[in-house]
Design a binder for these strands. Structure first.
Length: 566
RNA sequence: AGGGGAGUCGCCAAGUUGGUUAAGGCAUCGGAUUUUGAUUCCGACAUGCGAAGGUUCGAAUCCUUCUUCCCCUGCCA
């Protein structure tokens, strides 16, 4: 096995690739241009990761380009903090956007000019209906809407009014610019949609230069066209917006008409992929922040120890289609584990210790061996694993009364200390309350690096020398929610229950761990496997090399014994 | 006068100009190897493609009817 050859994931075909193949074959496009267009009003989550991998991945595969564009047309919700987090997340995932980061707000002037063009063509009008009146005029699913009384204004009047809207002559919310399409359309998006509203809000980039802001449907298609996007990929809920996307581009003087293609958004079980709900968890203090390792945000997953490769593998395994994409959490864990298995050095750590005294340990006589950092990758190197008279082993690795199939330590039983001797439990020491506080064991001096003769010792447990171990804060993370779909549980009255009540109380347990000394000077974000326990990472925020060791549990190892012993 | 999408194994998902035994991955279950109950390796896993009819030598693919689920009534994106 070689690690220098980059892992090449086989390309999985899907309907969007088929469309691109056809467009390239027919000569419709010479190269493709995609874009990832987040709104900077929150942190990116695992659902965005899927979209990022799709858009940037396609650009990579087809040697095209992918832009990163902030969809910042709603100044009340958008902040630079989010812009910065988004840039960092996308880069960290391993993708490069073409040129500079783009902003829909870069196009405000052009958007405005196109709006005047639409007015000139008699295709847009200034409406003075308030929100409530507009809703009443819109009709509903079964009844057609009614035309706005302002719909038939003259072009001159519309132009004058729109310019004055821009000039700040009217109060917020008093007027809108609307497209003149069809109030009877069965597609509600086509019932004279609003494309500009008056809102005196400070924009994170344009400041107070504008008091009118364009709406998504109007902005997005034009932004795509201005950037020469060939394939504009978005999630299924925008399917009904596509006629509007096309309508706008068909009615303005712009020489580019990207194709909008929708795919299903990701739903991750026992998690949540709603920016609004994730925001609630943060503001209610139920997690420590957007980057809490339990959060399905990209920054949370990063802090949890998930690798970019693991997340990319996950995205690939989710697939791209138009049917519901409801993914079991184990798919994410499996992908993360798989990448970590190959790339993480191993070390031993005891998280729930019980003291073991090796009664026949002789300083200077009893030996030790060095241990490889990875059993299958000698190039990872080795380290010395110091042994001493007193060691810690995992409490779970000892049973006073071993159940059927038990391969670990028990009174009178033998077990192998990983990379060290076979030991035998001679005596169990208990405190007054009957709790086991110490085990006295003897080691077999002939078993260092070789099997005992005449008998077979199947079990192997991890351990760490008490005097050499470094203490660390270890944060054991588990799923954030106890339910598959915490936001889809109904109470007796048929109403949805608050998803926050399904937070897993065991989603975080903090313990003091005893770890091999090599771990002492690790930098932040160092990923290690603690043998037999799982993958861990030094915390990106709180870990200080050489001073305060803090590990987060990324994911446990598969544990077929746990399953069997249930 | 509603519109737009989707139903292929527990979870994803190829296949859709009709043509041999319906890819693959995850999960699961066996078994082998193992100084991680990990990894790795081998094997099993849809007489069936939402349902019922029909066309055909032949249907997941075509036709008809039915059915279930998702999205849409922000001056959010």
């Amino acid at each position: 096995m070689s690690t220098d050859a980059p892992a090449v994931n086989p390309v999985v075909n899907h309907f969007i690739r088929t469309i691109i193949d056809n467009d390239l074959a027919s000569g419709k496009h010479a190269a493709i241009q995609t874009r990832f267009p987040p709104e900077p009003n929150g942190y990116l989550h695992v659902g965005h990761a899927k979209a990022i991998c799709l858009n940037f991945g396609l650009a990579q595969d087809y040697q095209g380009k992918c832009n990163l564009r902030m969809d910042d047309t709603n100044p009340e919700k958008e902040e630079d903090e989010y812009v910065n987090a988004i840039r960092e997340d996308v880069s960290w995932l391993g993708f490069n956007w073409a040129g500079e980061v783009r902003y829909a707000s870069d196009y405000f002037q052009q958007l405005y000019d196109f709006a005047e063009e639409l007015i000139q063509k008699g295709l847009a009008f200034v409406c003075e209906l308030n929100a409530e009146e507009m809703r009443a005029h819109r009709g509903d699913f079964v009844t057609p809407g009614k035309n706005s009384p302002y719909r038939e204004r003259s072009i001159e009047e519309n132009l004058d009014l729109f310019r004055r809207m821009k000039a700040g002559e009217f109060p917020d919310g008093s007027k809108t610019l609307r497209l003149k399409i069809d109030m009877a359309s069965p597609n509600l998006n086509l019932r004279d949609p609003v494309i500009y509203r008056i809102r005196r809000a400070h924009h994170h980039r344009t400041g107070d230069a504008w008091c009118i802001y364009p709406m998504y449907d109007y902005t997005h298609c034009i932004s795509d066209a201005l950037e020469g996007i060939t394939h504009s990929l978005c999630t299924l809920e925008f399917e009904a917006h596509r006629p509007l996307y096309d309508w706008v581009l068909d009615n303005i003087s712009i020489g580019c008409h990207p194709q909008q293609i929708e795919f299903s958004r990701l739903e991750l079980l026992s998690s949540i992929t709603s920016k609004r709900k994730l925001n609630q968890l943060v503001t209610d203090g139920l997690v420590t922040g957007w980057d809490d390792p339990r959060m399905p945000t990209i920054s949370g997953m990063r802090r949890r120890g998930y690798s970019p490769e693991g997340i990319r593998l996950f995205a690939q395994r989710c697939g791209i289609s138009k049917s519901e994409n409801i993914i079991e959490f184990s798919v994410l864990e499996g992908a993360v584990r798989e990448e970590l298995e190959a790339s993480s050095p191993r070390v031993m750590a005891v998280l729930n210790p019980i003291k073991v005294t090796l009664t026949n340990f002789e300083p200077g006589v009893t030996g030790s061996r060095s241990a490889p950092f990875h059993p299958h990758h000698p190039e990872f190197g080795e380290r010395e694993v110091p042994l001493a008279r007193e060691i810690w082993i995992e409490r779970d690795d000892f049973a006073e009364e071993p159940p059927k199939g038990w391969q670990r330590l028990f009174p009178g039983g033998e077990v192998r200390l990983r990379y060290s001797y076979v030991i035998k439990c001679d005596e169990v020491i208990k405190d007054a309350a009957g709790n086991v506080v110490e085990l006295k064991c003897s080691l077999d001096p002939d078993t260092l690096g070789q099997n005992p003769v005449g008998r077979k010792v199947k079990g192997v447990i991890h351990w760490v020398s008490a005097e050499h171990a470094v203490e660390a804060e270890v944060r054991l993370y588990d799923r954030l929610f106890t339910e598959d779909r915490p936001d889809a549980i109904r109470g007796e009255d048929g109403q949805y229950l608050d998803f926050k009540q399904f937070i897993n109380p065991a989603s975080l347990t903090v313990v003091t761990g005893y770890i091999e000394p090599v771990v002492k000077d690790l930098p932040s974000e160092a990923r290690y496997q603690f043998e037999r326990l799982g993958y861990f990472v030094t915390d990106r925020v709180d870990h200080v090399a050489g001073e305060k060791i803090v590990f987060n549990r990324t994911v446990t190892l598969k544990d077929s014994w746990a399953k069997e012993s249930k």
